[in-house]
Each structure stands twice: as structure tokens, then as C-alpha cells.
């Protein structure tokens, strides 16, 4: 992993069209500003991981689970 040191207000350029700026540093928190083309997907990593995990569990759903839910929903 490339590690760079930056001060508040300084930025990092990624390719020609992405810019990451250090907006604020407060204790252990860093606020970052990101400028990128609108098709670039930017999300907190934990969001990605949580969705992946939810998909993994969902993909394993058995037809029996489905029948069970359908039955219980009608009770």
C-alpha cells in the first residue's frame, strides 16, 4: 500500500480525474473530500462489506426457507 503524508488542505490526485482532499483532522478522525466522475462508486468500506455479507446469506436461502416464510406471513 502506498502511504503518503498530507496536511489539512492538501490533496492527492488519482489518475486525471479523481482528487482526494484532507478537509479536517480532529483527534482520531479525518474528514476527506473526494472529487470524482459521477460514475465512480464511492462508499464507506463497511457498507460494501455489509452488503456483500447480506448477499452471501441471501444467496444460500433454500426453497424450504422461502416456503416457511410464505406460510408464516399468511398466518
Amino acid at each position: 500500500m502506498l502511504v503518503l503524508t498530507r496536511k489539512v488542505g492538501e490533496s492527492i490526485a488519482i489518475d486525471d480525474n479523481i482528487r482526494v482532499v484532507v478537509v479536517q483532522v480532529k483527534g482520531k478522525q479525518v474528514r476527506l473530500g473526494i472529487e470524482a466522475p459521477k460514475e465512480t462508486k464511492i462508499h464507506r468500506e463497511e457498507v460494501y462489506l455489509a452488503i456483500k455479507e447480506q448477499n452471501r446469506v441471501a444467496a444460500e436461502t433454500s426453497p424450504e426457507d422461502m416456503k416457511n416464510v410464505t406460510r408464516l406471513l399468511k398466518k
Binding site: V47, I51, Q54, N55, V57, A58, T61, D65, M66, N68, V69, L72
Partner: peptide, 18 residues
């Protein structure tokens, strides 16, 4: 919405975020 069905069916969830 993709749904997840845990063993306790009453705790089923839907993914609205994605």
C-alpha cells in the same frame, strides 16, 4: 429488495440500501 431469511423467520430483513 434482496431479502435474508434467518432461522428465526420473524427476523427476516430486506436490503433497502442496495
Amino acid at each position: 429488495s434482496i431479502i435474508s431469511i434467518p432461522d428465526k423467520v420473524e427476523q427476516m430483513t430486506a436490503n433497502i440500501k442496495a
